[in-house]
């Protein structure tokens, strides 16, 4: 714990006279979500074809130039929308990541088998757009797993090898962790060493031997269970699961995603 705060250090990024306060905004966003949350399901229980969508605010863990200048009404520097639905026995994901500091807007589409660790299958696609004032404005990247081992990407049509995956490796996308962690939470908790996955970060960067393990349980600001993920070339990130089975907070090294809204699922 933070010596000066009741909140877990992995999502406590209050600094000095910061205004608005990081933790205050995090709790405010989560409270808003909790008020609207009347479901108690996880994504696996959805009806066929129905989309479930989680919307997250992106809070910058550090302020120096990343959150814009001066006091602002909100710390948020963007949005992540994770939408998925089950069709023909596969999970189809559409993830949109928009960051106003980098100017990068990624639209990532991929499909996964209906298993707990969401193995990546078929072709996937990233459409990147950038709102900066420079030459680069957009890029497309299509990918596939060739012969179950080689990740190949077509970047603006140019094919490049992006690495190989061991036959035994479980390959998934980091954005599927929003479902993988809830689905595997009990397995992770009972495992001494956690579980190993190979992540395809943003559908472009292979992160082999990524480890997923249990971190801690907290009661403030809400009852949450924490999990960690790290691997080669991957700094530890911390994922906090709420009592409804949703990832409420995902804190990577530089930014914290805070659940703002959930749309869809079976309402009880």
């Amino acid at each position: 714990m933070n010596d000066k705060s009741e909140h877990h250090w992995s999502f406590d990024y209050n600094y000095g006279a910061q205004n608005p306060q990081f933790t205050q905004e995090l709790i405010g966003t989560l409270s808003e979500y909790n008020r609207g949350c009347y479901t108690d399901i996880d994504a696996r229980d959805t009806r066929a074809g129905e989309a479930i969508t989680h919307i997250y605010n992106i809070l910058p863990n550090y302020w120096r130039g990343y959150a814009g200048g001066g006091a602002e009404a909100s710390l948020s520097i963007g949005t992540v929308i994770v939408e998925r639905s089950k069709q023909d026995g596969l999970w189809s994901y559409v993830v949109q990541y928009e960051n106003t500091t980098s100017g990068e807007h990624l639209r990532m589409r991929f499909r996964c088998c209906d298993e707990h660790y969401r193995p990546l299958t078929e072709r996937w696609r990233v459409d990147a757009r950038n709102s900066g004032d420079d030459t680069y404005s957009e890029l497309t990247c299509e990918g596939s797993l060739v012969e179950d081992s080689e990740v190949r990407l077509h970047i603006n049509g140019t094919e490049v090898a992006a690495g190989t995956v061991d036959a035994s490796a479980k390959l998934t996308c980091n954005w599927a962790l929003f479902d993988v962690i809830p689905a595997l939470s009990q397995t992770i908790r009972t495992s001494n060493d956690g579980i190993e996955l190979t992540l395809l970060e943003d559908l472009e960067q292979l992160r082999p031997k990524s480890r997923l393990g249990f971190l801690a349980s907290v009661q403030t600001p809400f009852p949450l269970e924490g999990y960690y993920v790290y691997g080669t070339g991957l700094l530890p990130s911390y994922w906090w699961l709420d009592v409804h089975g949703n990832i409420a907070i995902a804190s990577t090294f530089f930014e914290t995603l805070v659940l703002r809204e959930k749309i869809g699922g079976i309402h009880e």
Partner: peptide
Amino acid sequence: TLYYGRRNIGAGGAAYYDSASTHAVADFLT
């Protein structure tokens, strides 16, 4: 400039900028 950040890149911030820089260079090279 191919890419210099939406808010201009300062001292740090690799987590925001580096992959976008790679995209920009990829766009340039292709």
